[in-house]
Design a protein around this nucleic acid. Structure first.
Lengths: 115, 115
DNA sequence: TTAACGTATGAGTATTTGTTCATATGTTTA
DNA sequence: TAAACATATGAACAAATACTCATACGTTAA
């Protein structure tokens, strides 16, 4: 079983100098997706259960349209997937990285608060 | 030695339901900091060596003022630290989480590109 | 103290971004 | 097919953001 802690350091060590602009841009775009409270709430809502768009709207107390717009962004970045069930669309977290990126964000914040 | 992979999952499991708004906002604010190409470049510049503000400006080919503004944001979020050496300020990465968050962002992007 | 250097910061501006509103698309039921 | 339901999407607007310019602050050397 792989340990991501070491893996993380390995991967950065292998980068020689500055990564190229396209890669940097892709990576910062990915983090930008996590950098919004609404999208963060959606990810957490989906963490426990997959949900329909309306269910998410109700859960967050926001308009369906706003949620749909944000779900598109999450999907374009491969952070959520969806499938149709009759009239409704079910969304779910798509990737293990979502958990790990979120968790490390939380750890950093927790440490800040404990200081 | 702790394995962050498991740790990450543990930490999310312990969150019961939706984290409170303040925490969610703090976390998304943290990711927002990573969600900018200039700040990402600064972090990479500092990855290999600590550097002065002017050195970073030269390295990225950007104005000193722009870099200073971004360094302030990075420092306010405890991602970099600094110390004075005579007239110059030396900036450095301050936290192990920086490496890990960056690395996981890269992993996610790499996987996307390999598909 | 004054001048020079390195950095920080406030104001102004252009761009990006998240939401709402209206409406289009797609699916099921009558 | 028409109506009802669920979701997606484009336009418009307000708020946030990143850069530039000008200038202030802090340190060192003359």
């Amino acid at each position: 079983m792989k340990c991501d802690h070491d893996h993380a350091k390995d991967m950065l060590k292998h980068l020689d100098g500055m990564p190229d602009d396209v890669l940097l841009c892709d990576v910062s775009d990915l983090f930008k997706v996590f950098g919004d409270t609404t999208r963060m709430k959606i990810l957490f809502a989906l963490y426990k259960n997959e949900m329909s768009v309306n269910a998410i709207s109700d859960c967050l107390g926001m308009q369906q349209s706003a949620i749909s717009h944000q779900l598109k962004i999450l999907k374009d970045n491969n952070l959520v997937g969806n499938r149709r069930e009759g009239k409704t669309m079910i969304y779910f977290l798509s990737d293990d990285h979502v958990y790990q990126i979120l968790a490390q964000g939380f750890e950093h914040i927790m440490e800040e608060h404990d200081l």
